[in-house]
Design a protein around this nucleic acid. Structure first.
Length: 499
RNA sequence: GGUCCCAUCGUCUAGCGGUUUAGGACGUCGGCCUCUCACGCCGAUAACACGGGUUCGAAUCCCGUUGGGAUCACCA
């Protein structure tokens, strides 16, 4: 056994790369690198319903953009590969069988419907802990074989002791004790043959020789399952270290609904990569001397994980913006800024996609900037009176904006055709003509009543920027609707069959 | 609701038993500078959640209360 420090970031490729991923990458990276260790990227794509290659590519590109590099990963390989869990299914099967043999796990043939009903029943009876009832745990060997040979769908669940406590030794938090009666007999292997997070990450972390798991505190409650698995396998668990969660302004965990969370949004806004890293380095951590502006290098020279504070920091875009401005003013040369601008949106690819939208309506080259300004700006400026024409109340407008925002979340492919279709359905739903309906979005998304073609623009702008401008629009109208109204809206939307 | 985590200005934080009338930064509000705006500079605002201990002494240690958060999926 060697004692090299090895840390990892293990994102799941389901959607836009999250700033929290960069946050934890930063600390995993710095922690490992300041101790001559290695930092590994592993893609956790065992959820084959939601995982996409596109999202994986975006994660890799966002991480690269941020300035964090990794020693081993799906794109560069390494001695412990493959680094994509979907390519390791045979490994998980093998280890799952070991568990099965040891009776540390068992086959479960319960249908999702049954699971659902026992869960509901338990909740109705206000059971202190809602969990699997162990129905399949005591099936006889014959029963199991019979069901297996009948091809009855099954999952594999882990066995959890009925009593006793698990002690998590957390690098920052000391000992955390959790009783086993709180721990569910988690599914390890899904009926589609893919492992769940718990099995896959434990097996991989061990096989990849991960020495320290630095992850969000949301994982604390399921850590006993992981420790139990290490125990069943006879492996020494790595050191656990649970970081605080980045928060929304209302202190809840940073979420898409309440904040821009995607790295691509900040990139698109014009936050410099080194500023994002610097700012994230200020979340829960501070330089010994109190300096607020520092490079990754400087952070590493002064890093001490024990300086980490554990209360969840609110992600404050104002301060991030201030830091960005300070960098531009104090750290960059004119040439640096030019370089950044080019890499940002003044590159051939982006310019071409914009030109594609306005070739027909460009009379003079000098019209370019005024016409395309929304394609380069952050939040558009407009008079909210523009929105209030058409005899719609503020509440009507907010309803429309909220509904659209949520409908957009359901969209699997962000392109003009799908958007066109969606907007038609939405206009219909609100009993409005598309022309009237879309006018609202011309204003909210571009700040103007007359602009480039809407759906084409939205495609070029990207979902993150569009979402954010709509949220901004809602705030221009005095903020979101009340909780109850929102709930009503959401259930109404779910009953609506969009697409 | 059960379990667990956390607790210094509105926000990010310094502080790790006495050097503290609790320091810095963002924000906000004044002022100066100035061809506008910004930058910069100066100033103001504002915090140790509460209650018990421990101690000669507590923001700092312990316990309780309160508050906030996370979690309770064939998602990670």
């Amino acid at each position: 056994m060697n004692n090299t420090i090895r840390t990892r970031i293990a994102p799941s490729p389901t959607g836009s790369p999250h700033v929290g991923t960069i946050y934890l990458s930063l600390f995993n990276y710095v922690f490992a690198k300041t101790q001559q260790g290695k930092f590994i990227l592993r893609i956790e794509d065992t959820d084959r319903e939601r995982s996409t290659k596109k999202s994986e590519d975006e994660i890799v590109s966002s991480l690269k953009w941020s300035g964090i590099s990794w020693d081993e990963g799906p794109d560069i390989g390494g001695p412990y590969g493959p680094y994509r869990q979907s390519e390791r299914t045979e490994i998980y099967k093998k280890y799952c069988n070991i568990l099965l043999e040891k009776k540390a796990a068992y086959y479960c043939f319960c249908t999702p419907e049954r699971i659902d009903s026992i869960r509901k029943e338990q909740m109705k009876n206000k059971a202190p802990v809602v969990k699997y009832d162990g129905h399949c745990q005591h099936l006889s060997e014959e029963e199991i074989q019979e069901k297996l040979s009948n091809n009855t769908p099954y999952v594999v669940r882990m066995t959890v002791p009925k009593t006793g406590t698990c002690c998590i030794r957390d690098l920052l938090r000391g000992n955390i004790e959790i009783n086993y009666d709180q721990v569910d007999e988690q599914i390890l292997m899904k009926s589609d043959g893919f492992p769940t997070y718990h099995l896959a990450s434990v097996v991989d972390d061990h096989l990849m020789n991960i020495s320290h798991i630095i992850r969000g505190e949301e994982w604390i409650p399921s850590t006993p399952k992981h420790i139990l698995l290490y125990d069943y396998f006879g492996w020494t668990p790595p050191v656990f270290c649970h970081f605080p969660l980045l928060r929304n302004a209302d202190k809840s965990k940073l979420s898409k609904r309440k904040n821009p969370t995607s790295v691509s949004f900040y990139r698109r806004l014009g936050i410099l990569p080194e500023v994002l890293l610097n700012y994230l380095g200020l979340m829960g951590w501070a330089m010994p001397g109190g300096d607020e502006m520092f490079t990754l290098q400087e952070m590493m020279e002064n890093f001490d994980i024990n300086r980490m504070s554990l209360s969840g920091p609110i992600f404050d875009i104002d301060k991030l913006t201030w830091l960005n401005a300070k960098y531009i003013r104090e750290k960059l040369t004119k040439e640096d800024i030019l370089k950044h601008l080019k890499a940002w949106q003044f590159n051939d690819d982006y310019l071409l996609s914009v030109i594609d939208l306005l070739q027909g309506r460009l009379n003079l080259l000098s019209d370019f900037i005024p016409i395309t300004s929304p394609m380069f700006s952050g939040m558009p400026e407009y008079d909210k009176k523009l929105l209030l024409q058409e005899n719609l109340s503020e509440e009507d407008l907010k309803t429309i904006l909220h509904t659209t925002l949520w409908a957009m979340e359901q969209l699997t492919h962000w392109n003009k055709d799908h958007l066109y279709k969606l907007f038609n359905q939405l206009a219909d739903h609100h009993s409005m003509k598309l022309k009237i309906f879309s006018r609202i979005f011309y204003i909210v998304l571009t700040g103007k009543e007359i602009s480039l073609p809407l759906f084409d623009s939205m495609e070029v702008l990207g979902s993150d920027m569009c979402r954010q401008r709509i949220i901004y629009g809602i705030n221009q109208l005095g903020g979101p609707l009340g909780k109850k109204k929102l709930q009503k809206l959401e259930s109404k939307l779910q009953s609506l069959k969009l697409f």
